[in-house]
Amino acid sequence: MGDRNKRTVEEQDRPESVFNCLYLEYFPLIYKYSYRIVGNHEDAKQFSQQTFTHLYDYFASGQVIREPKALIYRIATNLCYDYLRKKIRVKEAMKNENVVSISNSNLEEEIDKREKIELIRNALLKLPPRDQRCLLLYQEGFSYSEISSIAKVKKSSIGKILSRATEKLVRILKNGEIT
C-alpha cells in the first residue's frame, strides 16, 4: 500500500492510461469507503462514480497530480460529507437501508445485523464530522500525514482527534447511548 501511495503521475505518462489504472484499482475501494459513510448502495455507487468524474476533470485540466490516492479519497470524502450535511437526506438514506429486501433464509440474523449496523452508524454520526472523517480514513489504512492532507486537518492534531474519537465511539457503543 505504501508504494501505491507514493506513486506520482509523471507528465510524460499518458493521462488516459494513468486514469484508467487508477479507476480500475480504486473504484472498488472508493465504493466501499463511500458505502461506510452513506450506508446504501445507490448513493455509494453515485458518489464513487462522481469521484472519478471529478478526478477526470483534474486530469483533463492538465494538472500534475502528486498523490492520486489522497486526491481520490479527498474528493470522495467531500462528496459524501456534502451529502450527509443535508440532514433530511440522511434520514431518507436510513429509511432506504431498511427497505432493502431481506432473504428469507436467515431472516432474524439479517434483521439483527441490520439493526446493529444502524446502531453503529448512528453512533458514528454522533461524532463531529471531522472526527468521523479521521476515523474512517484511519480505518482505510492511511498514515497521520495522509489523513491530514485528505481531511484538511493539522498533522499534529490527528493523534489527539483519533484518540478522543475512538474513546468517545467506544463509550457510546458500550454505554448504549445510541438512540
Binding site: 479507476y23 473504484f27 472498488p28 465504493y31 448502495h41 455509494a44 449496523i117 474512517l136 480505518q139
Partner: peptide, 12 residues
C-alpha cells in the same frame, strides 16, 4: 467500523 462495509463491492 468494518461492519459498516458493504457485503459486495462491484467491479469498476
Amino acid at each position: 467500523l468494518e461492519l459498516l462495509s458493504p457485503e459486495t463491492v462491484p467491479e469498476s
